[in-house]
Simulated scan of single mutants.
Amino acid sequence: MAIIAMVSAKGSPGVSTAALACTLSWSRPTLLAECDPAGGDILAGYLSGLEIPPRGLLPLAVADLRGRAREEFPHQLVDLDAGDPGRRLVLPGITDPVQANTLRPTWERLATFFADLEHQDRGIDVIADCGRLTTSAAPWPLLHRADLILLVLRPATLRTISPALPAIAHLRRELTEHGRGPGALAMLTIGESTYPNRELEQRLQLPILASLPDDPRSAQVLSDGGRLRRNPELLRAAASIEPVASRTIAERRTRLSATAVPTEASNA
């Protein structure tokens, strides 16, 4: 795998919890990058019980402007797994939405940097928590580069489902005009749905990649900190997403490679 971006539409929270659940449960080395322009939550939430010096996405972006992103990268991370260092990493996000403008000139290069992590000695997959699309400072270059974009949706009522329609349309336009096509886009649902999955897919014209249960107890720990129960339902379900995402990305890369060959041959 490589870059998996998670986003949400208005009125459908759960991106940060889903991204952290996947980071804690996947088997491959994984980096959770808090790329939400509204600000990161993990230092003030899940990791609030630890004294962690200032670090994260903003210092990395500044280092990138100086051509030192690779050297500075290890110093901006928080390691979540003391027993297996480097396996579950977090790059904390900005602490003030005003800082989002500072990131604008660097998103293109940061996206390339994240993509290259897959090819390092210990290949790292990036789960990018990109927050809500309603902001004017969304990290579009990162979304354009992502191998998989998951629209996180709580399909409990029509009120939570309706905002997904314009969000999906916006994503499709952006990915068609600037990315590698809308084929990277899918849904990750949370909790019970008002509609059967097939009907929801037809209404939104988007496939459901996977679903997570509504597990308030575990979600609260991932949001606010505390001790997780042993083998919680939320993390078990999140772990099951990894092989599906890996297969989906591999199949899409194969399709993209196949369509690129005739174009290259015709230009030869």
Rank of each mutant, 00 (worst) to 15 (best):
211 S>I: 00
151 L>D: 00
216 P>K: 09
209 L>K: 04
44 A>I: 01
207 P>I: 00
150 L>I: 03
173 R>L: 13
133 L>W: 03
50 L>G: 07
110 L>W: 10
52 I>M: 09
47 L>F: 10
227 R>L: 07
265 A>M: 09
13 P>W: 15
78 V>T: 14
179 G>D: 02
235 L>C: 02
115 A>E: 10
98 V>W: 04
219 A>Q: 10
40 G>I: 09
213 P>N: 02
51 E>L: 06
141 P>M: 10
19 A>K: 02
109 R>N: 07
65 L>M: 11
207 P>V: 01
152 V>N: 00
40 G>C: 01
7 V>F: 03
247 R>E: 11
179 G>Y: 04
224 D>V: 05
17 T>D: 02
247 R>F: 07
240 S>G: 08
187 M>T: 01
37 P>S: 06
257 S>I: 13
87 R>A: 09
137 A>H: 11
72 E>C: 12
212 L>E: 03
47 L>M: 12
119 H>L: 06
62 V>A: 09
265 A>L: 13
80 L>V: 15
149 I>F: 00
195 Y>K: 13
120 Q>I: 04
25 S>N: 05
120 Q>N: 06
201 E>R: 10
90 V>E: 13
55 R>V: 05
196 P>M: 00
97 P>H: 11
228 L>N: 03
130 C>K: 14
141 P>N: 11
105 P>L: 03
157 T>E: 08
209 L>N: 00
259 T>F: 15
